[in-house]
């Protein structure tokens, strides 16, 4: 396949960026999207140009490092991560627009790489349990009802990629935060911090400059792990419960 790529190029955080056009040829439909970019970068390096910077790590769809808004959609046209997107989703002769995640809480570092540490700080604010660590405890020691375990697992699937933020017209991190809150709040292990967790994580989310939810649903459509929009409803419920309980203390 022969493709025209329009890629966001930006030297550093302070520089102005712009879309640059590149032609790539000899792309196999079995290549992943990132392998296609690797091909482009090899050519750029041979020509003595600066390769396009983009984030990636596992390339297995599990780490959450890869990003990219492809033709206006976070992680591109399929419901998966960019590393698991294959070139068979495109046609010979296509023009593909590639842009970084856009949100003021995700400043661009270089080209397509953005700083997502704001999500880490939301986790630090409460996305953990304070149980003693050490050897893994006997799994049956703490019984968890099956529906609760399923609910927790569904939310634990979030890989923290930030596609929800990139897709949201308000740059909101509600889907990410709700996935993390719901995952721990439903489990007995997460019970001791049930109230502080949701209050602190939402407060951190606000402090980082993320927007609020207007329930457009763009986040859930973009999420490669299928975290549903109703997760936000569940978090709102947890938040209201926690705010009421905190007021009584």
């Amino acid at each position: 396949m022969k493709l025209t790529l329009r890629v966001w190029r930006q030297k550093n955080a302070d520089a102005d960026g712009a879309m640059s056009t590149y032609e790539v040829d000899g792309i196999s439909s079995d290549m992943s999207f990132l392998e296609m970019l690797d091909t482009l970068n090899e050519e750029l390096i041979l020509k003595g140009e600066d390769p396009v910077a983009f984030d990636h790590d596992c390339r297995e769809g599990i780490c959450g490092a890869c990003s990219l808004v492809i033709n206006g959609e976070a992680h591109g046209p399929e419901r998966t991560t960019t590393c698991q997107l294959h070139m068979r989703s495109f046609k010979d002769g296509d023009t593909i627009d590639i842009e970084p995640w856009r949100a003021s809480a995700f400043p661009v570092i270089k080209d397509l790489v953005v700083d997502r540490s704001a999500l880490d700080r939301i986790i630090q604010a409460g996305g953990y349990i304070t149980a003693p660590t050490g050897a893994a405890p006997e799994a049956h020691a703490t019984p968890v009802p099956k529906p609760d375990a399923d609910f927790a697992f569904e939310h634990a699937e979030c890989i923290g990629c930030g596609a929800c933020v990139a897709a949201c017209p308000n740059g909101a991190a509600m889907l990410f935060t709700s996935a993390k809150v719901n995952h721990l709040n439903v489990l007995p292990q997460g019970a001791p911090e049930r109230e502080t967790r949701v209050l602190d994580m939402v407060a951190q989310m606000d402090d980082e400059g993320f927007g609020g939810c207007t329930l457009t649903g763009e986040c859930a459509t973009a999420c490669p792990k299928g975290i549903p929009l109703v997760s936000i409803t569940s978090m709102n419920k947890e938040w209201l419960r926690a705010a009421r309980k905190a007021a009584k203390r």
Binding site: R6, V69, N170, A172, G209, G211
Partner: peptide, 28 residues
């Protein structure tokens, strides 16, 4: 106040536009 916060959180638009949410959602 919420709208101001939302607009500030997403100052840069994407170059490649795509069709957005339903009419009722967009016109709030």
């Amino acid at each position: 106040q919420l709208s101001r916060r939302d607009i500030k959180a997403r100052p840069d638009k994407y170059v490649h536009k795509k069709p957005r949410a339903s009419y009722a959602t967009r016109t709030m």
